[in-house]
Computed example of a mutant assay.
Amino acid sequence: MSSPLVVAVDGTSGSGKSSTSRGVAERLGLRYLDTGAMFRAMTWWMLRQGVDVHDPAAVAARAGEPEIVSGTDPTAPTIAVDGTDVAVAIRQEDVNAAVSPVSAVPEVRARLLALQREVIAADGGIVVEGRDIGSVVVPDAPVKVYLSADPAARAERRTAEEGGRDVEVTRASLLARDQIDSGRATAPLTMADGAVHIDTTDHTLAEVIAQVVALVEDAGART
């Protein structure tokens, strides 16, 4: 019995991971998982509980408490914590500012890794996006992609998505997030062995989706 197809999409913030992953999943009839939303959901819960997110021991002590459930429909992905829809709440500025220190806590990563693998192992192929999918979560994924883009382009995209923020402030925030995520001891942001690097700076979303779909189809033809 063959294993479900897993497409691992990693990369920097604002490089187009979510839009690309959802587009590829839609095109190919696959499920979709945004692992970043899971870390944001954990962060949102920690903030709501009054946990000091800059105290790794305090975060670790409570990492096992929240129930985090991710929907996998690429046309309408959902994320809930203890039965509450937090899709909008996890994109707020307080979560933006706190997600990196929470994500760096090994106990958080271990808890969410287990949840991610449960979702991935369910029926049907899946496109999974994050920062350590190809390197840690599913290192044997048949298709691994690493997306990046020029910091200025990433800042413009993220500002357009969120609205109202200054582009330079957004750019500084993205670069700071990159530095934290790349430098953390547990599962740092990195391009996995065997991943195909796509610089999305000068490509439209449709072009990037088409490139990834071609990689998936090529992988299917070779198996």
Rank of each mutant, 00 (worst) to 15 (best):
E65D: 14
A80Y: 00
D202A: 15
P56G: 03
V108G: 01
G50V: 11
R22P: 09
A41C: 05
D193H: 12
S103H: 01
E118S: 10
V105W: 01
E162H: 14
A57K: 14
T201N: 08
P142G: 13
R40A: 00
D193T: 11
A121S: 14
E161M: 08
G124A: 12
P188A: 13
L113A: 14
V136N: 04
E93I: 14
T201Y: 09
V138Y: 00
V127S: 06
E168H: 11
L175K: 07
V216W: 10
A89Q: 14
S173C: 01
V127M: 06
V108H: 01
T12S: 12
I126E: 02
G36H: 00
S21L: 02
E207I: 02
G124H: 10
P56R: 03
A155G: 05
V145T: 08
A104G: 06
I209G: 00
T200C: 08
R158Q: 07
S19K: 09
A160S: 15
I120F: 10
G124Q: 12
T204A: 10
W44F: 11
P101Q: 13
V6K: 05
V9P: 04
P56F: 02
E162M: 14
L30H: 08
S18Y: 04
V88L: 12
A87Q: 12
S13E: 11
A110M: 09
R131C: 03
Q116W: 03
G163H: 04
V167P: 07
G194P: 11
E217F: 04
W45H: 02
S103K: 00
T43Q: 05
D193W: 05
V53Q: 03
A121W: 01
A61M: 09
A206N: 11
L5T: 08
K17F: 09
D85V: 04
M191Y: 00
L115I: 13
D218Q: 15
A206K: 10
